[in-house]
Design a protein around this nucleic acid. Structure first.
Length: 417
RNA sequence: GUGGGUGUAGCUCAAUGGUAGAGCCCCGGACUGUGGCUCCGGUUGUUGAGGGUUCGAUCCCCUUCACUCACCCCA
């Protein structure tokens, strides 16, 4: 028997209903914050991801689903969507529209990793991008959107961590200083961090090894080495968040994985997620547009991991949609009478279902119960002769007559009462 | 890619070196046209797969696959 691929999951109805609710709420919130939807392809020229995510990143190096198209072109399933959105922004000259361009998207991403708690090979992200603006109040706006989203979804226990990793002016200087510092401790670092100090020294800062953490805490902080502009920017972001009463934590060791980040970076984390504790992450990427061959364009954004978000949802907050009416025909005459009624009710937006005319009343009652029907309607030969059906409230077991003439409207009156 | 844990009925799990059981679920009945509760009855298995040791393996050993958690990396 075949089953789904490793790291690829079926989202069954109970779970899918939660997704739908989350999407309804998020569309509403994005809209209130002035964002417009965009849909970009799942497949792109792999060079897009090399230029954006970074050729050195594991995401592109080892984890991308990349293959040759039938015409020989090298293509890849997107590991994230920011690069595609920025490509679309450049390709379609969206800078000619009102500034900033505020876009959001939702959809599947693909990375060939070993699955674990909160990590899949096909996973889903909902993300927002604000393109074309440099000022810190846009960072604040984006973070406030994220904070409000969690509020609307009644997800508690989220910690918003922020940091600034500088810009092309100050980051290289800091990087050199950090490198010089780490040189003195090479023998005391873990094996991973010795490699990291060569490839991506900032990563040493968030190593989980106790010994490395000690060294990291003694190391120079990126925040002490920001240039005047970056320092001012970061301060303004903090002030803006405080003005909105949005709690945050400055986390000087917070580093981002993707090459394109600059200045503000942030993560929303929860301790209920296992090792993969970030439910959303993002930051500013002022250099990305240029790296993709567009005009220099500052921008920022975030992505929410939908599966991780789902794991944090309080199921009791998701509104239920119970079956309003279960129609029980006893025999074919009743069934012939009820089928147009069923159709008419459904066209009026009522959620209803009909039983099998050949099944016993008992078994149809049971099915109505399993479907959590609010009401059942019983029509057998006795009801047809009398011209009155029986409608039963399944909660309080009160059963009453319901005239068969103009039955649809009689039922609507009961259901809408 | 590396390491740990786990694979037994649809689900959650027992069991013993002598070829498997419970609860839940499902179906039927008690109650021939009235659900949930109760009681009674019933269905379901290549014990993940392959090989080895053994008179005999679900159990021990090896291999493999899957799931899972962690590392790496990241949403």
């Amino acid at each position: 028997m075949l089953s789904s691929l490793r790291g690829f999951k079926d989202v069954l109805s109970d779970e899918a209903l939660k997704w739908q609710w989350v999407e309804t709420v998020t569309h509403e919130v994005f809209s209130a914050f002035g964002f417009s939807p965009i849909q970009v392809p799942l497949l792109e020229d792999v060079r897009l991801f090399h230029a954006s995510v970074g050729a050195t990143s594991d995401i592109v190096e080892k984890q991308m689903y990349a293959f040759d198209d039938l015409d020989g072109k090298r293509i890849g399933l997107r590991p994230e969507a920011t690069a595609s959105v920025m490509r679309a922004y450049i390709e379609h000259n969206l800078h000619t529209g009102p500034v900033p361009t505020k876009l959001y998207y939702s959809g599947p991403m693909f990375r060939h990793e070993r699955p674990q708690a909160g990590r899949l090979r096909q996973f889903h992200q909902m993300g927002a991008e604000v393109i074309g603006v440099l000022k810190p109040h846009h960072d604040v706006e984006l973070l406030s959107l994220l904070a409000y989203l969690f509020e609307r979804l009644t997800i508690r226990g989220i910690v918003l961590q922020i940091n600034s990793i500088g810009c092309p002016v100050c980051r290289p200087l800091y990087r050199n200083e950090l490198l010089a510092f780490l040189q003195g401790y090479l023998s005391k670092l873990c094996e991973n961090c010795r490699r990291r100090s060569r490839e991506n020294p900032l990563r040493v800062l968030d190593c989980k090894e106790a010994s490395c953490r000690g060294i990291a805490s003694a190391s120079p902080s990126p925040l002490d080495h920001l240039c005047a502009e970056c320092a001012h920017h970061f301060r303004a972001v903090q002030e803006g968040l405080s003005r909105l009463n949005i709690p945050f934590l400055i986390q000087p060791r917070l580093v981002r994985g993707l090459d394109y980040y600059t200045k503000t970076v942030f993560e929303a984390t929860s301790e209920h997620l296992g090792a993969q504790s970030a439910v959303a992450a993002g930051g500013r990427y002022d250099g990305l547009a240029e790296a993709l061959g567009g005009a220099p364009t500052p921008a920022l954004g975030f992505a929410i991991g939908m599966e991780r978000l789902m794991a944090l949802l309080d199921p009791t907050q998701v509104p239920e949609r119970p079956l309003q009416l279960f129609l029980i025909p006893l025999g074919s005459a009743a069934s012939k009478m009820l089928s147009p009624i069923l159709y008419a009710l459904r066209k009026r937006g009522m959620r209803c279902e009909m039983g099998d005319e050949e099944a016993s009343l008992k078994s149809q009652m049971k099915r109505g119960d399993r479907l959590s029907a609010q009401y059942v309607l019983i029509v057998g030969n006795a009801e047809i002769e009398a011209g009155v059906a029986q409608i039963r409230n399944m909660q309080n077991k009160v059963q009453q007559g319901c005239a068969l003439t103009d039955l649809t409207n009689n039922l609507l009156a009961v259901l809408n009462a």
